[in-house]
Design a protein around this nucleic acid. Structure first.
Ligand code: FES
Ligand code: FES
Lengths: 144, 144
DNA sequence: TGAAATAAGGACATGTTAGTCTTTATTTTT
DNA sequence: AAAAATAAAGACTAACATGTCCTTATTTCA
């Protein structure tokens, strides 16, 4: 569904968000540890998120990553997915035809499209704040 | 979503089914052409489908692949997916946690699970016959 | 019986995703 | 000013998915 890079990106962003509501920045090292992801590889994806403006980064001692808390309800999961995996998840033909279209549909199109649309809807309508609240309340988890 | 191998497998199976209702066997070469998939690679996936009992194969001149028409409503897309990709599509955690569970859910679990369930349902409830009818009536397509 | 047509099988090649390592740039602390 | 702590960047490696090629086995047909 999502690439490994994208899974790490979403987990990391949620963790950064949870720390940011406490007014704290989080280092790459801490993120990798708390999200159980490979450090150097996670660094790459965080760079992309930073360039996309989803997270903020600060170099130097006491640096790290953070997110403006006032933005957390405006940031949607779809933005993270778009930054890392692009939008082909919602556009690709389920059976691998060059393009998915109503004019020239594959045999699975009619059944598949609504499900894919549902996926797109939840991803576009779920905010970072939505995902973070469960984590801070202890009802959801980012690693084993 | 599905691997390339699985996409080819589903397309090929639908094409074989369409030919089988006319009582004809189809050669690998013809399948690859009509489904627009790489010959040798498609051969591999057809071997798996054959070993899984989803399609029948016959060697030699006038050989090829076919499907018992009386089975076509009993064969579900899920069987093809299972034979090629396994069932992780319906079981994997969307954010890459080791396992997806209600006891230890990731932040996306509650929203993601129903969509994944819908996908599983359509895949398990759609038969080969369902997908083949649109092809023979000309309303759906297997290649550009 | 020999040739042709087919699928099966396995070794190899290529491409993409995932991941590591090392160096550089920036900031804070001492 | 020097040292320490951090992110950024790029080259490299590993694993896996995708795809090709060649040989073998089986069947039909002339
Ligand atoms: S054409 Fe295949 S999913 Fe739309
Ligand atoms: S635990 Fe992540 S989708 Fe179920």
């Amino acid at each position: 569904m999502f690439s490994k890079a994208c899974e790490y990106a979403i987990r990391a962003t949620i963790f950064i968000a949870a720390r940011s509501v406490e007014g704290k920045r989080t280092s790459l090292k801490e993120i990798s540890r708390e999200v159980d992801s490979p450090v150097a590889f996670t660094a790459k994806t965080l760079q992309k998120l930073s360039k996309s403006g989803i997270i903020l980064s600060t170099k130097g001692a006491h640096g790290g990553f953070n997110i403006d808390p006032t933005q957390m309800s405006a940031i949607k999961v779809s933005q993270i997915v778009m930054a890392i995996d692009g939008d082909m998840v919602y556009k690709r033909c389920s059976l691998g035809l060059d393009s998915c279209s109503e004019d020239h549909p594959c045999p699975f199109h009619a059944r598949f499209k609504p499900v894919r649309q549902d996926l797109q809807n939840i991803v576009e309508n779920t905010s970072l704040l939505d995902l973070t609240s469960g984590l801070v309340s202890g009802s959801t988890f980012l690693k084993v």
